[in-house]
Write a protein that binds this DNA or RNA. Structure first.
Lengths: 148, 148
DNA sequence: TATTGTTATACTCTATAACTATA
DNA sequence: TATAGTTATAGAGTATAACAATA
C-alpha cells in the first residue's frame, strides 16, 4: 500500500480526517471578520447557549469538551463584556446557570451572517452534491467528538 | 425558521460545520496517546512531510496555513529532537529544505497506528455509509481551507 | 465526603514587527 | 529592492493543581 492510496482505506480515514479538520479549523480562525471582538471559542459558547438555552457552567464545559477552569475563564470574560449573565441555582448554591443576554444574542446573529458570507462563499464553489456530503458529515463529526 | 431547522439550509451549513470542526479538533487534541511527546501540530507537520517529501519551510507554512515564523519554530523544535532535518538549497541560499528523518518516519507511523486505534474505533461505531460520507468529506474540508 | 466552580500557574500555538542573509 | 527565513515579543486558549463553597 502506498502513501497515496492509504486515504481510501478505513485505517487511513482517521488520519485524513484529522488533518483536514485541523487545517479547516485553523483557516476559520484566520478568516474571522476583523471587526468582531470575540474569539472563535467565545463565539462557539454563545452559539451553544443560543441553541440550548440556560445551562450550568459544568454542562457548558462538557458540551464544548473543555475543562471547567477553561470554561470558567471564557464565561468570565463574556460576562464582563455583557454577552451573557450568570445566576446561582435556587436549588443548589454551587451551580452557576449561564444564559445569553440580548447583546450576546445580537452579536451571535450578526456574526453568523458574517461568517456565512465567508464560508458560504467557499461552499458555493462546491457542487450541490458536495454540499450535501458536508451537511451529512457535520453531525457525524459531532458523534465522533461526543463523550459517548 | 427555527433554530433547530437552520442546519438544513445552506445558510446554516457554515455555522454547523464550523462548530462541528472545532469540537472534533478539541477532542482529538485531548485523545492523543499519553506517551507521544509530540503535539498535534508537530504530528501534522510530520504527516505532511511524509506525504509530500522534502519541502521548503515556506511551502510547509503555506500548506499548514500558518505564518512562516510559526512554522520556523515548529520545525526548529522537531529538528532539535531529531524528527526532521534541514539543509540549504543549492540553488538559493535563502531557502531551507526540510525532510523527515528515519526517527520522524517511525514516530509518524507509530502515532498513526495509535491514533487509528482511537478514531477508528469511533469510526467503527458508524455505518459503512456514514464512513463513506466522511471519506468524501475530508477532501472537501481541505478545499474549503485552501488558500485558493 | 463528594461535587461545582474558581484561582493560580504554566505550556502550546499562533501572530505581528523587526531583523538577517541572499537574490 | 525583493524574498526566505529567524528572532523577539505578545496574546489566546487550554491544562493541572490547589482551593472554597455547598450538598
Amino acid at each position: 500500500m502506498t502513501v497515496e492510496t492509504v486515504s481510501r482505506t478505513d485505517a487511513g480515514l482517521a488520519s485524513e480526517l484529522r488533518l483536514s479538520v485541523m487545517r479547516l479549523r485553523r483557516r476559520l480562525a484566520v478568516e474571522r471578520h476583523p471587526d468582531n471582538p470575540l474569539s472563535l471559542s467565545q463565539m462557539t459558547v454563545l452559539g451553544t447557549l443560543h441553541r440550548h438555552g440556560e445551562m450550568t457552567l459544568g454542562d457548558l464545559a462538557t458540551h464544548e469538551r473543555v475543562q471547567p477552569p477553561s470554561m470558567s475563564r471564557t464565561v468570565g470574560c463574556l460576562e464582563a463584556d455583557g454577552y451573557l449573565r450568570r445566576r446561582p441555582s435556587e436549588s443548589d448554591g454551587r451551580v452557576q446557570l449561564v444564559s445569553l443576554t440580548e447583546a450576546g444574542r445580537d452579536t451571535l446573529l450578526a456574526d453568523r451572517r458574517r461568517r456565512d458570507a465567508w464560508l458560504a462563499q467557499r461552499l458555493a464553489d462546491l457542487d450541490p452534491e458536495e454540499r450535501a456530503v458536508l451537511r451529512a458529515a457535520a453531525p457525524l463529526l459531532d458523534r465522533l467528538a461526543a463523550l459517548d
